[in-house]
Simulated scan of single mutants.
Amino acid sequence: MHEITVVGGGFAGLTAAITAAESGAGVSLYEAHHTLGGRARTSEGPYRTNEGPHALYRRGPHWTWLRRRGLLGPMAVLPPLEGLRFRFRRDGALRRLPPLALLKLGRRRAGQAPVDVDFLTWATGEAGVAGARAAAHYMGVALFHHDPGSLSAAFVQERLRRATALPPEAHYPRGGWGEVIDRMATHARDLGVRIETTSRVDALPEGHGPVIVATHLDAARRLLGDDTLRWDSGRTALIDLAIRTRRGDPFVVSDLDAPGWLERFTAQDRTLAPAGVQLIQGQLPLAPHESKADGTAHAETLLDLGFPGWRERTVWRREALAHGRTGAVDRPGATWRDRPAIDRGQGVYLAGDQVAAPGLLSEVSFNSGVAAATLALRTISPARRRTAAGTA
């Protein structure tokens, strides 16, 4: 009686499964990996890393949804603003404050920025060349893209406004994003969702019921045989670093000379690393011609500036390359509505962070998961939902 199938057990897939099950549908969820979570996984071991810097934005729709279900859990408290120790690389040097023009741009309403003009051109008219470039590079934190200035002004400005909001919107699930995923999975099972890990779905069965494909677009394209499932994304080098604690280490080093971001996650959550050790995670966007080694060199430049003696203090290090897994980016003239549609026809629906749904970062996955489940539920009569729920 499991009438809705969800392929993919990341944030989007679990959101879709819970939404469908709460409405009385029987749901089966299949995840190819041995653990759930997708990019929201938190690694096991002494260093509790996410796949690159992660944050949960408080004003997003998923915040209220998770909280109402008791799934949000405890949040790590940010240090007081005066103790955050943000540092900004400008003109090759580390500074305590960003340009005033960047902050002024952050106050502009998102609706003021045009869709069909690139951000750098629009922002230059608003704040001058230097401020516009600094703002574009700063947005590497939320876009994972090597050239945010080339993207739609409306797209970038919406994210700049939220990334510079005071008080800060960014919050951090204590213990890492994996804690939220674990609570979501438990809630899904309590609702009767059948979850199978290490279960790769290579083809949709004939005569299938509603199917929600909650994978990244590359996997969805192969599964559905649909070459139109493409959208621009970022490409970035990831670095995880554990270093011995030293007083005065910054919380964040943001590169305003080129997109790049380092964040000391143990500043707000000491559970992420053993006592006496600080956990730093960074992402360094890469142009098409650049390699992971280029990103690593960029990270080391920022580390040299912000974390003196970091090489001698390093006790653990890991590097990775993320390609096409950093969320959708919209070019001038395009909006989220132009991305691959959620409803693919014949009872197949898409969810994930590169599909036609609004939001910032994980909010796209959440919104598309809810939308996909809602559309799938319309194909199941209320009577059949009740029957499925009673036998799940």
Score class of each variant (00 low, 15 high):
Asp227Cys: 10
Asp227Met: 10
Thr228Arg: 15
Thr228Cys: 02
Thr228Glu: 14
Arg230Trp: 13
Trp231Ala: 15
Trp231Lys: 08
Trp231Asn: 09
Asp232Ala: 15
Ser233Glu: 13
Ser233Pro: 04
Ser233Lys: 05
Gly234Cys: 06
Gly234Asn: 06
Gly234Tyr: 06
Gly234Asp: 06
Gly234Pro: 06
Gly234Ser: 06
Arg235Tyr: 06
Arg235Thr: 15
Arg235Cys: 10
Thr236Glu: 09
Ala237Gln: 03
Ala237Glu: 04
Ala237Ser: 12
Leu238Thr: 03
Leu238Ser: 03
Leu238Met: 10
Ile239Cys: 10
Ile239Gly: 09
Ile239Glu: 15
Ile239Pro: 03
Asp240Trp: 13
Asp240Phe: 06
Leu241Ile: 07
Leu241Glu: 04
Leu241Val: 07
Ala242Cys: 03
Ala242Met: 04
Ala242Val: 04
Ala242Gly: 11
Ile243Gly: 01
Ile243Ala: 01
Ile243Phe: 00
Arg244Phe: 02
Arg244Gln: 12
Arg244Cys: 06
Arg244Leu: 11
Thr245Trp: 11
Thr245Leu: 10
Thr245Ser: 14
Thr245Glu: 12
Thr245Val: 11
Arg246Met: 10
Arg246Trp: 06
Arg246Asn: 02
Arg246Asp: 10
Arg247Asp: 12
Arg247Trp: 09
Gly248Thr: 04
Gly248Ala: 02
Asp249Asn: 10
Asp249Gln: 01
Phe251Gly: 15
Phe251Leu: 14
Val252Ser: 13
Val253Ser: 05
Ser254Glu: 13
Asp255Cys: 02
Asp257Gln: 01
Ala258Gly: 11
Ala258Ile: 08
Ala258Trp: 12
Pro259Ile: 04
Pro259Asp: 05
Gly260Ser: 05
Gly260Phe: 00
Gly260Val: 01
Gly260Met: 01
Trp261Ala: 06
Trp261Glu: 11
Leu262Gly: 04
Leu262Glu: 05
Glu263Arg: 13
Glu263Phe: 14
Glu263Trp: 13
Glu263Ser: 15
Phe265Glu: 11
Phe265Gly: 09
Phe265Pro: 01
Phe265Val: 13
Ala267Thr: 13
Ala267Trp: 07
Ala267Phe: 10
Asp269Gly: 05
Asp269His: 05
Asp269Asn: 07
Arg270Trp: 11
Arg270Gly: 10
Leu272Arg: 13
Leu272Gly: 02
Leu272Ser: 03
Ala273Lys: 00
Ala273Pro: 00
Ala273His: 01
Ala273Ile: 00
Pro274Cys: 09
Pro274Met: 08
Ala275Asn: 11
Gly276Lys: 06
Gly276Trp: 08
Gly276Arg: 06
Gly276Ser: 07
Gly276Glu: 07
Gly276Gln: 08
Val277Asp: 03
Val277Ile: 14
Val277Phe: 00
Gln278Pro: 03
Gln278Lys: 08
Leu279Gln: 03
Ile280Gln: 08
Gln281Ile: 10
Gln281Asp: 03
